[in-house]
C-alpha cells in the first residue's frame, strides 16, 4: 500500500482537476464512455429468461388511421429448452399465436420445426408490415451489444462519443442493419435508436420516450418509431418475471 501525505493527496486531486499533470483517463478512473456503455447494455438487455411481457403496439398510417394490437411474449427457459410463445390480439383480423425456440447461438427455429426460419419470412407472416417484427423476434432470442461507434469515436473537437448496437444472433445478418444510438443532451440516456441499412441509409428512427425502472422488460418503457409508412408507438403494459411456464415437460420429437 502506498502511503501519501494528506497534502500530497489534495494536490493530486487539484492538479487532476486542472488536467495539468495526468490525462483525464487516469484522474477520472473509468471513462465516462465505459460507464455509458454498461448502462446502455443494461437498459436494452433483458434480465432472466423466464418472464411474460405484454407490449401494446399502436400504429398510425400516413392517412391518420390508427389501431392497436397487443403482443404478449412468454419465455420459458429450462434444461428442456428455451422457448418463446408469442400471442397477438387486438385490432387484427385474427388472433395469432406462434412459438419459437431459441438456439444457444441465438438462432431461432419454430417450436415444431428443426430448420432455421429466415427472419424476413417470419415477419411477413405477421399482420402489419409497418411493424418491426423481425427485430422483436430476433432480439428476443439474441443479445444486444452496445459498443463505441468505430466510424465516429470520441473525436478531438469535443463532440460527444456515439454508440452502435449489434445483435448477437446467428439468424441475423450483421450487415443487414446497424443500429446507431443518439444520446440525449445529458449524454446519460439514449434518445434515438437509428436503424441504418447496409447502404448507410436511415431505415427508421426509434425515439425513446420513457425509460422504466425495475420490472421493465428492457428498461425502455415507451418508444415511438417513425417509418416510411407511418409511425408506431410501442409500450410495455405489463411485465412479470419468473412467470413463463408454458411448454410441455418433455420436448416433442420432430
Amino acid at each position: 500500500m502506498i502511503s501519501i501525505s494528506f497534502r500530497t493527496f489534495v494536490a493530486f486531486v487539484l492538479l487532476c482537476s486542472l488536467g495539468l499533470i495526468l490525462p483525464p483517463q487516469l484522474c477520472a478512473g473509468t471513462r465516462d464512455g465505459d460507464k455509458t456503455i454498461r448502462r446502455l447494455n443494461k437498459l436494452i438487455n433483458r434480465s432472466g429468461k423466464d418472464y411474460r411481457v405484454k407490449i401494446r403496439i399502436t400504429s398510425q398510417d400516413k392517412e391518420g388511421n390508427h389501431s392497436a394490437v397487443y403482443l404478449s411474449a412468454t419465455r420459458d427457459a429450462d434444461p428442456q429448452g428455451d422457448w418463446l410463445l408469442f400471442h397477438l390480439e387486438g385490432d387484427t383480423s385474427v388472433t395469432q399465436e406462434f412459438c419459437l425456440k431459441c438456439q444457444p447461438d441465438g438462432g431461432v427455429t419454430s417450436c415444431d420445426q428443426g430448420s432455421l426460419v429466415p427472419m424476413k419470412m417470419l415477419g411477413s407472416t405477421l399482420a402489419g408490415s409497418i411493424l418491426p417484427w423481425e427485430e422483436i423476434l430476433v432480439g428476443s432470442c439474441g443479445s444486444w451489444l452496445v459498443e463505441m461507434d468505430p466510424v465516429d469515436p470520441d473525436s478531438d473537437d469535443g463532440r460527444k462519443p456515439s454508440y452502435v448496437v449489434q445483435i448477437t444472433n446467428a439468424a441475423f445478418d450483421p450487415g443487414w442493419v446497424t443500429t446507431k444510438i443518439i444520446m440525449d443532451s445529458s449524454s446519460k440516456d439514449p434518445l434515438y435508436f437509428d436503424r441504418i441499412d447496409s447502404q448507410g441509409k436511415l431505415m427508421r428512427r426509434i425515439k425513446v420516450l420513457e425509460i422504466g425502472g425495475t420490472g421493465s422488460w428492457r428498461g425502455i418503457q415507451r418508444a415511438i418509431i417513425e417509418m416510411n409508412g407511418g409511425r408506431v408507438l410501442m409500450e410495455i403494459v405489463d411485465f412479470q418475471k419468473g412467470s413463463g411456464q408454458f411448454k410441455p415437460s418433455r420436448e416433442n420429437q420432430r
Binding site: K207, L209, E210, R222, I224, L233, E235
Partner: peptide, 10 residues
C-alpha cells in the same frame, strides 16, 4: 390506462 400525450410524455 396510461397514454402518450402529444408524443411526449404519459
Amino acid at each position: 390506462d396510461s397514454l402518450l400525450l402529444e408524443s411526449d410524455h404519459s
